[in-house]
Design a protein around this nucleic acid. Structure first.
Lengths: 250, 250
DNA sequence: ACCTGGATGTCGATG
DNA sequence: CATCGACGTCCAGGT
């Protein structure tokens, strides 16, 4: 997994290292003093400072400072990636089109550079996504309301899709908007938009709107009530039945 | 800047290394085979695989795979961070409250671990933010429309704030919503919401709504026209005057 | 290529 | 602490 690593390489050695590994399906890690220029949707300039640079096989690049999960500068997946010597410093160019953007990393000094082989992605399971919530509620719509019958999922109406389209016990149409976390008033407006769209497409019918989420902000709840929309509390993570909780599994 | 680095340390050596540096205002970088569990707003499990682990002085942690800017697993800023030996493997625990979340990283094998001192953040300048756009347009509202007078910025109305509140040449009130990038129909609805709020608060007056952005999606433009709202194209990055473009600067 | 919406979004500001 | 909105959001998926 560890392919090669250099401590305090001279610019020429660093350039050779980068040239050797940049396009070799390899992940690069570089710690050093670095200056970053970015131009694209916006423009940024980061003065020289100690940073941590990461370059992945897909050409994505990120420059990390001492704080936070977010990089100081980044480039999501480049169409072109190259390293040159400019004025005695190694400079990395990372470009992409659409949107047209450039990130330029000037390496003033390199403390350590490492080439790694990160193997193909191992199995990754995520639970609690909105898609899973939608599937679970489509199978058990009574968790939203007794007597609910799901007609459709991801029903396209105008532009954008209705999470769940259903009919209630009285035969009225119901538009359900799901949120995996606390719903804000943006969710209320999204729901209102879908309800309006359905009312427009099917004139003369009663259409209910239900916002289903584990929680809702106070202003959002007020907005929902004002707009004649309903909020129903549902759990994001499906409850494990009591009999299935075998202590032996832990 | 480079404090210490180990290649292929045994679990005990790795544990000692982590214990020595974890709470020392130091940035840690670890490459190795790793298994990650996450539980919090959602739940995830990543089987053992070659990954790159980053731990920053603020307690933030991220585990990177071979693709993309986004980590496979992460934790934004922990309240508690610790390393233990469990079953012959070093295990990192990263917890935070609010939201209550845990990330657990089991290090099956470590190829390289490095402790770095990332100095305090250097100067960072970002241009082209919405805030800067707002400031520029507040000073030069004619870029939106001739005869416009800005009354207020970030005017609070109900929920959320109006980017620019103005009066046009005919004395009508104008609500301006800014977007630094291409505006979608969410921007249209946000503007519509603000316009409605103003009309409610000041009944009987004519209120115009202008969406000012460098671009707009086709559906958003249609939605704006249908809602009686206007779109005005403005540049996100302030245009540099011709006389200021000195080739010598490049 | 454009557009939409989700996300463990993250992050900072503000009441 | 809750809420809200920007972000170079990133990213996958659909048309």
């Amino acid at each position: 997994m560890l392919i090669e690593s250099l401590n305090h390489p001279a610019p020429e050695a660093l350039l050779a290292f980068l040239r050797a590994h940049l396009h070799a399906r390899v992940t690069l890690h570089l710690a050093g003093e670095v200056e970053v220029l970015y131009a694209g949707r916006a423009t940024s300039m980061a003065e020289a400072g100690d940073r941590l640079l990461l370059v992945k096989p897909d050409g994505s690049l990120q420059v990390h400072g001492p704080r936070g999960v977010k990089p100081v500068n980044w480039q999501p997946r480049t169409d072109h990636l190259s390293a040159e010597l400019e004025g005695g410093c190694v400079v990395l160019h990372a470009e992409r089109r659409s949107p047209a953007e450039v990130v330029q990393v000037r390496v003033i000094g390199c403390a350590q550079v490492t080439a790694l082989n990160l193997a193909d992605e191992a199995l990754f399971l995520l639970q609690g996504t909105e898609a899973q919530m939608q599937q679970a509620l489509a199978r058990a719509p009574h968790l939203i309301e007794a007597g609910l019958t799901v007609l459709d999922r991801e029903l396209l109406v105008g532009v954008g899709g209705i999470d769940l389209y259903a009919r209630d016990a009285q035969g009225r149409f119901v538009v359900v908007e799901l949120k995996r976390g606390k719903a804000g008033h943006d969710a209320v407006h999204q729901l209102g938009r879908y309800v309006d769209a359905v009312r427009t497409q099917v004139p003369g019918t009663v259409v209910r709107g239900i916002l289903a989420a584990p929680d809702i902000t106070v202003p959002a709840l007020k907005a929902a009530q004002a707009a004649g929309l309903e909020f129903v509390k549902v759990e994001a993570l499906p409850q494990v039945p009591e009999e299935a909780r075998q202590p032996s599994l832990f």
